[in-house]
Amino acid sequence: MQPQRSTVRVRVHPLGDTALIAELGTRLDTALNTRAIALASALKKRRDVRQAVPAHGNVTVQFDPDQITYEALAAAIRRLATKRPPVEEPGRLHRIPVVYDGPDLESVATALGLPAGKVVELHSRPIYRVFLVGFVPGWAYLGPLPDELVLPRRAVPRTLVPAGSVAIAGQETGIYPLASPGGWHLLGRSTVKLFLPDSDPPSLFRVGDRVKFFAATS
């Protein structure tokens, strides 16, 4: 069998004089995310790259302009991105108990025209993928949500969301690792510790990991 040449195009844009963003695509898509992770891993091995963080479909790269120019690194990225990504090992699977008694469960059910029980069933059915770790320590963007659960963010964000809140917005779901402001819809709560300051890396979830929620009673 011939190895398939990729048709994915990469768009590279500078971020100031010491960083750039390499965009593989703008959709929430597991294959794109796999490519972003592979590209970031390849870039991290370079001595002229200080940091490469993969996100949903792009990689933010900080580089040393004394060692390489933006143009040369962008060209290297275009070459790397056309390589077939390695077959991805399945990420670690985390099973997370959730008490589905969140303050927005009823309003979400109403907005979606579903019984609350169905919202819980739909939310706890898929095995989600960790697309990006970031925003605050330990936060992970998980998805994709079942289409039936897709809602825009709350019009008015809450000034304080309790730590452990399990929430949805758009095509994604996540767990607030720390008490913080937030605009996502709160479906329930979990006691899992996502930010592990005394571990390295200090986040329970890593990009590419898989997460399965299940309903718990307390």
């Binding site: 100031g16 933010t60 697309f131 970031g134």
Partner: peptide, 8 residues
Amino acid sequence: ELLSFALI
């Protein structure tokens, strides 16, 4: 709306 990405 953009999907979130890493910032500097």
